[in-house]
């Protein structure tokens, strides 16, 4: 591996750790304050924010259960015909118990689910559900069996250079050097990555759909996955240096252009000159 982690990345890791420690200690302070000094002191100290946090703490479970309930409804309407009324699976699809929220995000946000029957490899489609609905579905499935979840925060908060190197080592063999996709055996293919959102990229690694390997946190740490996600998004968003990218298929499209554009133009010109003499 030719890449070293730069100090830039080290500091970003430290920052997240710091943020987490800060958050944990502020909860502790608040609880201690609640216990020791009571409501009056609390009101005096930080009336608004404390009231809000209290409210949130009470609401969170409620919110969550509402979300799970909403997800259950969506699931029963849209998915249960194939995956079974209790996620247990059936003739139409596998069991979803234990697949995790991340698998749902991947499958639904990339439009693969709900599936149209009868395709070998579920193709990417325009997603049927909004982000909120997807989160609800994910929460419902997460609540029934657990499984891998997307981490919180910015999923592209990683080191670009590290991401590039890891992408070339782990992903380019199937998805090509620029994420333009590639063929696998038996008509299967690794799709192009440009349309995949950061959530889909990250969840793809956790979920390992079809013949794509699953990358557990032991294989690629959270930071590494975030770095890869950032690089994949960079590839999708970066403009093209040096002109039209010809689909980023490498020398094949270049050869095609030389024959179809270059030689054709020049032979046309020779015909033109020839006709004028």
């Amino acid at each position: 591996m030719t890449t070293r982690r730069t100090s830039e990345q080290g500091t970003s890791v430290q920052k997240t750790a710091l943020r987490r420690r800060k958050r944990a200690s502020s909860y502790g302070v608040v609880l201690m304050a609640l216990a020791a000094l009571g409501a009056v002191y609390a009101v005096l100290l930080a009336p608004q924010s404390l009231a809000q946090e209290q409210e949130q703490e009470q609401q969170e479970p409620a919110n969550q259960s509402m979300q799970v309930e909403e997800g259950r409804q969506l699931y029963l309407n849209g998915c249960s015909t194939c995956h079974g009324l209790d996620l247990q699976g059936g003739a139409g699809g596998p069991s979803l118990i234990g697949v995790g929220a991340s698998a749902v995000v991947f499958q639904v946000e990339s439009g693969r689910m709900p599936l149209h029957a009868g395709v070998q490899q579920a193709p990417r489609k325009k997603p049927r559900y909004s982000i909120e609905e997807i989160d609800a579905l994910a929460a419902y499935i997460q609540a029934n069996g657990g499984g891998p979840q997307l981490p919180e925060g910015d999923l592209t908060d990683g080191d670009l250079q590290l991401g590039g190197a890891l992408f070339r080592t782990n992903c380019a063999s199937c998805h090509n050097f620029a994420g333009s996709g590639g063929a696998l055996t038996y008509g299967k293919y690794a799709p192009e990555l440009t349309p995949a959102s950061a959530r889909v990229v990250y969840s793809a690694m956790q979920h390992g759909p079809e013949s794509m390997p699953r990358y557990s946190d032991a294989q690629l740490t959270e930071e590494e996955k975030k770095a890869i996600t950032r690089y994949v998004r960079f590839l999708a968003e970066s403009g093209d240096v040096g002109g039209a990218d010809l689909g980023r298929y490498g020398p094949i499209s270049e050869g095609l252009v030389v024959w179809v554009v270059g030689i054709t133009a020049l032979v046309g010109l020779t015909l033109w000159i020839g006709a004028r003499s």
Partner: peptide, 24 residues
């Protein structure tokens, strides 16, 4: 654009990209 070497990355024996092709 032709031969965007910055996308291919430096040579590393452990890496290979899908669609590695020679010139035509």
């Amino acid at each position: 654009q032709i031969n965007p070497i910055w996308l291919y990355g430096p040579y590393d024996a452990s890496q290979v990209s899908a669609g590695s092709q020679p010139d035509w």
